[in-house]
């Protein structure tokens, strides 16, 4: 394969996973919700994209719809899960991912079942060379990554973001201070799921073929590694974590293709990820990037206050 295309391919995956890591960051990093079914919403987005694209919808509408469907699923799952104790959310989301995958696998009529489904490229009509298509994909994905990044920064550095962080620390205390945590948790799951849905749509659009085996719980695991490595409750952390992990992930495949090694670097990488997580939790439990204090303008008033040091 063309080396440039290989690099561009890596960039596309970095962007898609950055979206996933940022979406988990809204849920876990800021709100403290342990979503262990991230792949379900990614898959929902990918299949929504595939089905709507097959209907001939333009790609941007497919992406919007992927976000809506995944977001709606996020709201749906929040209904039972948020009323239960915290650890149940993990179980419910984890199970949800597997159930969704099994349904799609079994429903041949819906989206090809186990055989998968092909998807038209968003740039099909433009008659581009493979290299130009690769560039177009990089631009498409990263424009959305930047957009989501800015959106989340705007959403989080607000009194709203303060309530989310409060829920992460102590949801009962938030309730006592007049905010219904169920509402906020449901919204966080909706936003996170919608972003994961967009990532899924981009994934389907880029690969132009998806099948249920691409959506194993391993994807969720990778996203968690990215967030914990980068630093929860920091969007830069989520972004950089995704870039680093994807670099290793893609790099090991690259090694496999270009070098003859006595072992499969693809398998070794998971050992490395495991070690990395252990070392990180031991020596840098907050990840590469630390959570930044909230900036809403209120902090500036402290410095103006006469008796402040």
């Amino acid at each position: 394969m063309d080396l440039t295309v290989y690099l561009l391919d890596t960039l596309v995956f970095m962007g898609i996973f950055a979206l996933l890591a940022m979406s988990l960051n809204v849920e876990y990093g800021f709100t403290g919700l342990g979503n262990f079914g991230k792949v379900a919403f990614f898959m929902a987005g990918a299949y929504t994209y595939a089905i709507t694209a097959a209907l001939g919808w333009p790609f941007y509408l497919c992406l919007v719809f992927a976000a809506l469907v995944a977001g709606a699923l996020g709201a749906l799952i929040s209904l039972p899960a948020l009323r239960l104790r915290e650890d149940y959310l993990a179980i419910v989301t984890l199970t949800f991912g597997e159930i969704l995958r099994i349904i799609i696998k079994a429903e041949q009529g819906l989206a090809g079942g186990v055989w998968g489904i092909t998807i038209p490229s968003a740039f099909a009509g433009l008659d581009l060379t493979p290299r130009m298509t690769a560039w177009a994909n990089v631009v498409l994905v990263w424009v959305i990554v930047v957009g989501v990044f800015v959106f989340l920064q705007l959403l989080i550095n607000t009194p709203y973001g303060r309530v989310l962080r409060g829920i992460r620390e102590d949801d009962v205390a938030v309730q006592v201070l007049g905010k219904s945590f169920v509402l906020y948790k449901a919204q966080a799951l909706m936003v996170g799921s919608a972003i994961a849905g967009v990532a899924g749509g981009l994934f389907a659009q880029y690969l132009r073929f998806i099948d249920p085996y691409m959506f194993l719980p391993l994807v969720t695991f990778l996203v968690w590694v990215m967030l914990i490595l980068g630093g929860p409750a920091n969007h830069w952390g989520a972004l950089i974590g995704a870039v680093i992990v994807e670099f290793f992930n893609r790099g090991s495949r690259f090694l496999k293709d270009y070098l003859v090694l006595p072992f499969d670097p693809n398998n070794v990488q998971f050992i490395i990820f495991g070690l990395l997580i252990i070392l990180l939790l031991l020596y840098r439990p907050y990840g590469l990037f630390r959570e930044k204090p909230l900036r809403t303008g209120a902090e500036a008033e402290v410095l103006k206050w006469p008796s402040s040091p």
């Binding site: 303060r162 962080r165 620390e169 205390a173 959570e291 909230l294 902090e299 402290v302």
Partner: peptide, 19 residues
């Protein structure tokens, strides 16, 4: 609360503002 239930990673100011 009798035993404080604060948001320990948030600042004193943010703890008050949340209320």
């Amino acid at each position: 609360f009798q035993l404080p239930r604060l948001f320990f990673q948030l600042t004193v100011l943010d703890n008050l503002l949340l209320a």
